[in-house]
């Protein structure tokens, strides 16, 4: 892999290894995601795609490896902010001890989102008994005036902050074509709308890198086409980098500029769609399903 000076990487994953008990779920996974790209992570079922996602977004603490996020604001070590066990060297180095103690107490998954990574889930996870717009308001939690006193006294600054949040939420609903559903319960929306609402909610956190876990699962062909246009628009107009897991090869090949293929927890190919589709290891991994040549949907 060579570093492209015009498109520097936003995400660098190096030597990522994950063990569950005796099972080696990920073995030395390394790849990069370039800023402003649409990248995809593919592989047969059980290859470890979602495990990679869970490590990237801080739901799993990887056994080994390094994940670095480079945003214009800062470079973040995503493994560090999850809170790691103390090492022997910490006991003689107060600064690193304090750092680790801080993240052990206050670190966690939420820090990853605060650093600029947002995600959606394979099986949609909305706040089902809250309205669509409330879902988006919750996502803006960190950008709002959270001062308790200001909120209880309903100060002008607080009301302004709430109004802004509401406008932002409506703006995102419009982008996703959900303005009509604003005051409906998220759990009552049709499935396709729920999928879009979940992406809109992720966008409300102001991410630099958006991770979509099988965004087209359960969508009909028309919805899938709309979705791929939407994803492209998010990248072009709203400046996010997109990393997605997807089984729909038509969508992946048409949309992404860079593909990483996983099999049995290892990276077997990495490159643009054209190269990857012809890669012998990929063909071998998919052999039998012939999904590569078979643009079924």
């Amino acid at each position: 892999m060579t570093t492209d000076p015009i498109h520097p990487p936003i995400l660098e994953v190096a030597g990522l290894t994950m063990r569950f008990g005796g099972i080696l779920a990920l073995n030395d996974v390394s790849f990069e995601v370039r800023r402003g790209s649409i990248s995809a992570l593919i592989g047969p079922n059980g290859a470890g795609k979602t495990t990679v996602f869970n490590c990237l977004t801080g739901f799993y603490k990887a056994t080994e490896g390094q994940i670095m996020l480079h945003t214009p604001r800062a470079t973040t070590d995503l493994m560090n902010i999850l809170g790691q066990p103390f090492r022997t060297s910490d006991w003689i180095n107060p600064a690193s001890f304090a750092n680790r103690l801080y993240y052990k107490m206050l670190g966690g998954t939420h820090r990853v989102t605060q650093a600029g990574v947002a995600r959606t889930f394979q099986n949609v996870r909305l706040f089902k008994e809250m309205t669509a717009i409330e879902n988006l308001l919750v996502a803006q939690h960190l950008q709002l005036n959270r001062n308790l006193v200001a909120g209880l006294l309903q100060t002008a600054a607080y009301r302004q902050s709430e109004r802004d949040a509401l406008e932002r939420a409506y703006a995102w609903l419009k982008v996703f074509g959900l303005a009509e559903d604003a005051n409906r319960l998220a759990g009552e929306l049709p499935y396709g709308h729920q999928r879009r609402l979940e992406i809109a909610r992720a966008m409300c956190t102001g991410p630099r890198l958006l991770c979509l876990d099988e965004p087209a699962a359960g969508l009909n062909p028309r919805e899938t086409v709309e979705l791929s246009e939407l994803i492209r628009r998010l990248r072009d107009e709203h400046g996010v980098t997109i990393l997605l897991i997807e089984h729909d090869m038509g969508l992946v090949m048409g949309l992404s500029e860079h593909i990483v293929v996983l099999d049995y927890g290892e990276v077997i190919a990495d490159g643009d769609p054209h190269t990857v589709a012809r890669h012998p290891a990929v063909l071998a991994a998919y052999l039998g399903t012939e999904a590569v040549h078979d643009d079924e949907s």
Partner: peptide, 8 residues
């Protein structure tokens, strides 16, 4: 007990 892996 076995460590519980969170289902995401």
């Amino acid at each position: 007990g076995k460590p519980e892996v969170e289902k995401v």
